[in-house]
Design a protein around this nucleic acid. Sequence first.
DNA 1: ACCTAGCACTCCACACTCGCGAGTGCTAAT
DNA 2: ATTAGCACTCGCGAGTGTGGAGTGCTAGGT
Lengths: 351, 351
Amino acid sequence: MLAHELDARKEQILWAVIREYVARAEPVPSEVVFQKYPLGVSPATIRSGMHALTEMGYLHQPHTSAGRVPTDRAYRLYVDRLLAAERGSASPEGGWRLSPAERDRIRRRLVAREVPEEALEEAVQTLASLTEYPSVASTPRGSRRLRHVHLVPLAEDRALLVLVAECGAAEQRVLRLERPASAEELEEVSRLVSRWLEAVAGQVQGESLERLAAQARSHRELLASVVAQLRRATAARGSVRFFVEGVANILKQPEFQDVRRARPVLAALDRQEVLRDVLLPAPPEVHVRIGRENPVDDMRDCSVVAAAYRVGGRAVGVVGVVGPTRMPYARTIALVRYLAQTLSETLSRAD
Amino acid sequence: MLAHELDARKEQILWAVIREYVARAEPVPSEVVFQKYPLGVSPATIRSGMHALTEMGYLHQPHTSAGRVPTDRAYRLYVDRLLAAERGSASPEGGWRLSPAERDRIRRRLVAREVPEEALEEAVQTLASLTEYPSVASTPRGSRRLRHVHLVPLAEDRALLVLVAECGAAEQRVLRLERPASAEELEEVSRLVSRWLEAVAGQVQGESLERLAAQARSHRELLASVVAQLRRATAARGSVRFFVEGVANILKQPEFQDVRRARPVLAALDRQEVLRDVLLPAPPEVHVRIGRENPVDDMRDCSVVAAAYRVGGRAVGVVGVVGPTRMPYARTIALVRYLAQTLSETLSRAD
DNA sequence: ACCTAGCACTCCACACTCGCGAGTGCTAAT
DNA sequence: ATTAGCACTCGCGAGTGTGGAGTGCTAGGT
């Protein structure tokens, strides 16, 4: 049942069936493999191999007189080989590279985006248009570090607290003031907090926050509510959001022509908490979840290809695509990986 | 062909067919109208009325032995009556009110949201869950007025320009510095710009910008790039974005069980520029676009119900839903209108 | 021992027919 | 003007038959 039980020929047949099925989206008969892939054996022999592969759980036969369809397990093996190949072994695809034109296109679309939200938006759009799959990116997970804090007067009893995180993402919180504060007062508190922020090198944490709150003399209440909001913001920054683009793309896929199949997937893509389960936590390298490997049952007919992006070397978020399990993995992996890498560069440059 | 050509009975029949069809999603036969709606006449008479309505273009008959389906024109008449009814005339539905429980639910979900983005996000989520249709909201169109500007040092050659608009929405732009600027310098320019902002009452416009740029003494280049970014930001703020939620809901509707019908709609909802055409410009009151009334052909099987929301009395954005033309208009209109109103209050309160 | 040609077998996909039921439109009676 | 009655049309689902696709097996060849 294990991978090494496959002899060379069975592997060849399996790769052929996978490639054909990815292209045709219909069960692959032995005859087609025979004609398109020079295995040097007759259809009958191919059939016997396919039979064996079926018994081993790598292929599925919808009905007696139908060709074969790869199973999740087949794709898993294939992807494992693909990834191993990049580290030296022989690859089922002989290695897959993006064309310079495509690399260039990706770079160009991302290069000018320095505000993280814009870069992410652009990234998912690019990915969606290149892969023709729904694409997703998570907002950078809080580098809890803050770069800057500023208070802006809003109304008599309200002020806006603008927070700028290390990665450049800005966030706003509204502060209710127990008693009206003058613009000067807000300005002064801003300076106070900024100085403290420098002192603690942006680390907003329990103890240092205490010290900030204690440090108050004249502006006790104001500082207290700033501290409270900082605390809340730091906690909330754990809660990532997701950018999603191109969900309608999934309806182009033949396997999702039936609305009953498509709807669970689209509904899942609408729900932030599901995206969280599906995309996070992601190992830093590109990773692939095939069919039932997904932790969410509604995604059992989908594969997710995702990769972490980094800011200043730290993996802070994820970009990826959601497509049918029948997917050109080599290309998709290359695209997602390159996009994640480019995005990392873009975001890190803003630092 | 005009509305007043419909005598009282034909109207009754038409309202009956519409109500039934909204509920059943299947062609409505005369027998059903007879049994459920006490018109005081026999099925045969109802049939003759339906026949007339069909010739007038208010009903459609899919095939000879089928019941009737309302046309866009029928819905249009119905909605016009509905809206007129609120100004006093007799209504086809006898007026439609949200239950206090629902009003309360809407209020509760919006009341605590003071940052515009959060409020809008919450608004579309609420609308999507109450209507079970895809829901959309536009970001507030630039009140071009700015409340606050601040420069934050990012790196040697970069600074972050944080803009806070009157409505409380914050925006960031990255500034490339031709030569490194100290934190103090940035601080000073921030003050300079803030003072100018107060002087012009937040109006970022051509001539006053010139004056700001001219006013530069020591920080000529820095101010120049700030002005450039302000100009760009002011222009860009004309470009609204849209929050979209619940797109998968459309697949619950029987008329969108066929992917070929559903896909154009979902694709349209994915495209910001299409949303712009469909939702903007919106008259300040709630408005309804039925089927082919939509300016986008992909939406010909949909109706859009939208209403403007206001900040400080000015209509600055739009919330609405996209559903099938077969829609409980009275309820949907009431929901959208109430939500827009509540949203307006929430956003205005932050002022 | 492995491969392959040939063939019987299975099962789907498609087309076709048929009859039923639904719902209408017409007509003649009130 | 309304209505009961009825003939008519049409869609739909069930049932049937056929062609073809693709397999699995087997016997013979290397």
